[in-house]
């Protein structure tokens, strides 16, 4: 690529040979620099993936000493026939399709609030972002204390106000909303920051032009701000969609998938099959199903975004966080 000046100024006849030699040396250097990291990443992805594939096509049971047999697509058939799979899939999708839109709506509200401040914006944003930094296990634990039906402060407050509060994570009806609530609490600030970056990217003269044309605040928001933020909302949505398949720690600490299977998402179901029952065949097949779902889901969302982008001439913005402060 960038050939050093020393070679460029060398005498002409030798030039091409030197360049060839130089290019070869460059290529070898690139290989030596990238090699170790790529080998490491490659080995640690291919090796476990080979195990995973192998397990998913066999009757691999760790706890029961039965001979491991090749079962073909048997595990996948078992998965698609089981109601637990479909219920755990729907719970994962609830995170992606209910929690994430709520995060975007609430994040938008917070971003607008912060954007309206002339001072202290960054300090407030920093404080709102605290939950995102924390280990999900500690977050789950903090909510466990906070929502404890007997000794927790929230229910004490609600009882004091004359309500009959639910048992939150321990109640069959409220467990799932509780987990969703914790996810919203932890991740709304992230969405807020992405949208705030979008808001900061809208030039002031656009607002001024709207004001001159006599549009009120609401009209400005609906017709100017919202359309300009759509790419940012898309970015937030895709990122949160991918992350919704990762939700595990909070479920583990708050409900262990229960009561019953009411909060068992795909990740927890896979964990339970693999390390609760040691049915590695089924768990392996479940892992592969998840990977395929996530990949296909993400790719189709991105393809949709690109197609729309080509039609309207807009594209996904690079999320420039620096703009929050500016």
């Amino acid at each position: 690529m960038a050939s050093p000046v020393t070679i460029r100024v060398s005498s002409r006849p030798k030039d091409s040979a030197a360049t060839v030699r130089h290019n070869r040396a460059e290529r070898r250097a690139t290989l030596m620099l990238l090699g170790p990291a790529l080998t490491f990443l490659g080995l640690l992805s291919i090796w476990p993936f080979a195990y995973l594939l192998y397990a998913s096509f066999t009757s691999y049971q760790l706890a029961i000493p039965i001979p491991t047999e090749w079962v073909g697509l048997g595990n996948f058939r078992r998965i698609f026939a089981s109601s637990r799979f479909w219920s755990s899939l729907s719970i994962t999708l609830i995170f992606a399709l209910v929690a994430v839109p709520l995060q975007i709506a609430l994040g938008m509200g917070l971003a607008l609030l912060l954007n309206g401040l002339s001072r202290g914006r960054e300090i407030y944003a920093s404080l709102f972002l605290i939950p995102m930094m924390l280990a999900p296990i500690v977050v789950g634990f903090a909510w466990n204390l906070f929502l404890n039906p007997i000794y927790g402060p929230l229910n004490a407050l609600l009882r004091g106000m004359g309500f009959q509060p639910p048992a939150w994570a321990q109640s069959p009806d409220w467990a799932l909303p509780t987990i969703v609530l914790v996810d919203i609490w932890q991740w709304t600030p992230f969405v807020m920051v992405v949208l705030l970056a979008g808001l900061r990217s809208i030039p002031n003269r656009i607002f001024e032009a709207a004001r001159v044309d006599g549009s009120n605040r609401w009209q400005t928001f609906v017709h100017i701000v919202l359309p300009m933020l759509i790419p940012y909302m898309t970015v937030a949505f895709v990122l949160r969609f991918i992350d919704s398949f990762k939700v595990f720690d909070v479920v583990y600490i708050l409900t262990k998938g229960g009561p019953g299977t009411s909060t068992q998402n795909l990740a927890y179901y896979t964990y339970d099959m693999g390390f609760g029952r040691f049915d590695f065949g089924l768990a392996g097949a479940l892992s592969i199903v998840q990977l395929v779902l996530l990949t296909v889901g993400t790719m189709s969302i991105l393809a949709m975004v690109r197609r729309r982008g080509r039609a309207t001439g807009s594209e996904l913005p690079p999320v420039k966080i620096e703009r929050v402060a500016a």
């Binding site: 476990p48 195990y51 995973l52 795909l266 964990y271 892992s287 998840q290 996530l294």
Partner: peptide, 20 residues
């Protein structure tokens, strides 16, 4: 490609890691 590894939910490779 390198980054897409990061998108993977940890539950997916964990069975393979365990066997490894």
């Amino acid at each position: 490609t390198i980054l897409s590894l990061r998108m993977m939910p940890p539950i997916v490779p964990v069975i393979g890691f365990y066997l490894m």
